[in-house]
């Protein structure tokens, strides 16, 4: 059952990701992305990560996608601007893409996790995922957590600098 569900989610994720990139209409793109986010949340659920699944739906599907839709509406894209590709040579691009694919598959093919950290699936099932995550995040991983807050601060300041500063010419 789990394998079947995982297979379903992964196939849909791949197909929908392609549709996000290839859709002509940006609104369709965003809606495909909504579907994508829900399926990723499904994968998280399969991994016993219910907190991540909920955050995925609330933050990505809820907040970020609505933001995307609003941006598209405000930009009022009537007609798609069509440009030729900036760089030629798709055979070379295809060759590199295939090489990367082969490398990734080769890496994952024989992958047997030799060590399982202190938080295996059993520990998480008894402790519950949210509690485990909170415990680890605010004790052992406190430093990365605090660094992440500085990263977010820089992102906010950067957005203000690039979007709001008056142009002087």
């Amino acid at each position: 059952m789990v394998e079947f569900l995982f297979g379903y989610f992964s196939v849909v994720i791949v197909i929908v990701s392609v549709l996000v990139v290839t859709s002509r209409n940006p609104v369709h793109s965003v809606l495909w992305m909504l579907l994508l986010f829900f399926h990723i949340a499904g994968v998280y659920l399969l991994l016993n990560a219910e907190f991540l699944a909920a955050t995925q739906v609330i933050v990505y599907a809820g907040a970020i996608l609505v933001l995307f839709l609003f941006t598209i509406m405000l930009l009022d894209l009537r007609e798609e601007i069509r440009l030729g590709p900036f760089t030629g040579g798709w055979p070379a691009a295809l060759a590199i893409a295939l090489a990367v694919l082969i490398t990734v598959v080769a890496g994952i093919w024989g992958l047997k996790p030799a060590y399982i950290g202190p938080w295996g699936i059993k520990e998480i099932q008894t402790e519950t995922h949210t509690k485990a995550l909170g415990k680890v995040l605010f004790t052992e991983y406190l430093v990365p957590f605090e660094i992440a807050s500085v990263v977010l601060l820089v992102a906010i300041v950067g957005a203000v600098v690039l979007a709001k500063k008056k142009l002087k010419t």
Binding site: T103, G107, W109, G110, A114, Y115
Partner: peptide, 29 residues
């Protein structure tokens, strides 16, 4: 990939765990 092979992200812990890890996957990482 390194985490999957070694179960840790601490750099100092990696050497003795990587010696027993699957060679192809560690080279890909």
């Amino acid at each position: 990939l390194i985490y999957a092979l070694t179960g840790t992200t601490l750099i100092q812990e990696l050497p003795h765990r990587l010696t027993q890890a699957e060679p192809v996957a560690s080279v890909v990482a």
